[in-house]
Design a protein around this nucleic acid. Structure first.
Lengths: 233, 233
DNA sequence: GAGTGGTCTAGACCACAAT
DNA sequence: TTGTGGTCTAGACCACTCA
């Protein structure tokens, strides 16, 4: 009696991944059919299927009906990151969080915002500017637009006490998200609100969310010097 | 006869997500047990389970044995991005790709590299500097270290003809990845190799990969001005 | 101890794509 | 037409965690 335990789908995934890593199945190769792998490993096809799903999700293999499963020849580097609520991010580091509303007003959306929303219908939106502080030092300057058609409730919210993001995140789940990163030189209000010298390199995180195809909000978060974003697989 | 088709797990996922979006289940609420949802929707529990897995994956709900499923009160913004091989990235935009090796030599790893590898054992590694060009203009300057213990083959590779990344990606799958983004001001060799004025804000992507706990490579890619990285959910 | 999610299995049928 | 992945189902049992 060998006290064999049953294979879980993560075991199967790890086993197949190991075979890819040691080049039993090399990049570009075709893997055996799920059924055959299941037979070889001594588990149900469903289990192999679940494992393959995960390998496909992380971009290591590619599956096609009838075509079978192939090890990707040009694997992409794929990673996932979380953007936490700024308050939590700061507090989890043990720092003191603070927040200052700079301005909040309903204004016509400029072209750049319509572009980000991918919408061609001009209209008005709530334009909010605010600064997040960590240990009393400027941490993130955010310039946000909130669509008042999809999110009229935002007009009743007191944005002086807590950030629009906190309210949105708790009250307005989105169904689609787009995030962009890039670097800018500090200048004008960015430099001013972050209290940095003009010219400093700053990381910008631009996020836009929709519910269905209707825009909710778009925000440009300009981070203080030294800010890093990290991601893992 | 109402010609009912069967529910797929994506249907179930979308239905539950819709209920969360319309606040039938509000943030913090406990959802019914998988079994009850299955009964209500008229499908197998497995199907509900698969749907829930996906909602948990994107961070919309949290599941605990015995504790049940809850709508996350503080959903995190979670997104996935792909970092393609630079050659493909450039060519897919219809631009001409070019690559220039600057230097390649085995050197002792500096402290900063050991830190990134999370390893305390000093040693030597292949240090490679190169520039990727798009339409003959500098696009990315990369400063890379490759562990010659885990990847001795790299020493036989002709790095003048194509980038180390292309070889690595095809020949050295990794099991663990860490990525960081930040902004720096152009300076010294960064400015020189990217042909930009000192002070320009540049986006840096720092990637480190391991196989098991053994380091493979770490690379700092300094991108040309205007470079953007994007991600979706 | 008991409730809830996590997983496995075996079989069935569907859907897409290559032949 | 046919082969392969995609999914559903029903039932069973496991494993975590709360009371």
């Amino acid at each position: 009696m060998t006290g064999q335990t049953r294979l879980s789908w993560t075991d199967v995934r790890d086993e197949i991944q190991a075979r890819i890593l040691d080049r039993t199945y090399a990049p570009g190769d075709k893997l055996p059919r799920d059924n055959d792998l299941a037979l070889g490993l001594g588990c149900a096809r469903t289990t192999v299927h679940r494992a393959m799903q995960d390998l496909a999700r992380i971009g290591l293999v590619e599956r096609k009906r009838k075509g079978g499963t192939h090890v990707r020849a040009d694997p992409v580097t794929r990673a996932t990151f979380d953007i936490p609520i700024t308050r939590r991010e700061v507090e989890q580091r043990g720092s003191t969080y603070d927040y200052r509303l700079i301005s909040s007003a309903v204004e016509p959306m400029p072209e750049s915002v319509l572009l980000r929303f991918g919408s061609s219908e001009p209209g008005e939106a709530l334009h909010v500017k605010a600064v997040h502080l960590s240990d009393s030092k400027p941490y993130i300057f955010e310039d946000r637009w909130i669509d008042i058609t999809t999110t009229p409730d935002i007009l009743q919210v007191d944005l002086a006490g807590s950030s629009a993001n906190e309210w949105l995140v708790r009250n307005k789940p989105y169904s689609k998200l787009d995030v962009r990163f890039f670097a800018v030189n500090a200048k004008g209000e960015n430099a001013e609100h972050l209290s940095v010298a003009a010219g400093e390199a700053l990381l910008v995180i631009e996020r836009t969310t929709w519910i269905g195809s209707a825009p909710i909000t778009t925000v440009r978060s300009v981070t203080a010097p030294g800010y890093q974003l990290s991601a893992q697989n």
